[in-house]
Amino acid sequence: MAYADPSEAFERRSSTQVAIAHVIASPVIVKMAMLWLIMILFIAVTARWIMPYDYQQTALLSRLLPPGATGASGDFHLLGTDHLGRDLLSRLFSSIQLTMLVAVFGTFFGAVVGSCIGFVAARFRGWVDDVIMVLVDFQASMPFVIIALSVIAVMGTGNMLLFILLVGFQGWERYARISRGMTLSAVNHGYAAAIRLLGAGTFRVYLRHILPNILAALVVQVSINFPETVILETSMSFLGVGIQPPNTSLGNLLSYGRDYLLNAWWIAGVPGCAIFFTTLSMSIVGDWLRDVLDPTTSSGT
């Protein structure tokens, strides 16, 4: 309600126009959050080309330089250097790239798999539904990081693809719950029942009617899940059981910085703030999306 603008100005326009109108009408804080996310995405895509130095290049003479300092070889370091004299800005860009890669692919993977599991449960009901729901309940009550850690313990660290899938799997049970619940209620009571009575087949009901209707809820769930995926990945990398050197994620960066708080706070501060602002922006945008996409608040009825 806080963000929704139920003004009738949004009526009778294409969905793109409506989306743009919503963005323009959003509060300043949401715009700032979106700006931040766009910047992060831009960095993630172009990191390879915009980083000033090789992120692995060590320079032992230029160790622990503060932000804005010039190194022994005359190199300018906007964010300073780390304990091996590597340029922090370049390492930050590279880390953002990897963190976003894991988060985007992981979230996408988890969303698709989770939603499909929910559809399957709703479509087949019976024992299939029962088994899936027991697994969903179990997952909901078990901290995912524990499960991830036990898999890592066995499979070992360093397998990037496995790690992405594992991290992305976080939250699958919530997608499953949403797609199952909304499908069931649509099929049993609402418009889907009405359309079935007109003689429509399963595919038409699911693809043309149910999917577009629950897509909004799934998108909102993605916006909730995405920051959680970022936090899970960076936590695990921070703990040393996630992304392994020489690759680097924001979590790795932060964990190096922990040891230099006394004399080089920026090594931890810069990646920490990057993670924090990203998750915060995503939460703010997510809250706003939830209000905008909710037909009950945006229709004004």
């Binding site: 418009y191 009405a194 007109l198 009617h209 209707n213 037909p295």
Partner: peptide, 23 residues
């Protein structure tokens, strides 16, 4: 039932619920 649907149709109590909100 598909053929039957052409002959017998329902008008339910709540019209809002029986129309797809996004069509």
């Amino acid at each position: 039932h598909v053929a039957f649907a052409r002959s017998v149709q329902l008008v339910p109590q709540n019209p809002f619920l029986s129309l797809d909100p996004r069509a």
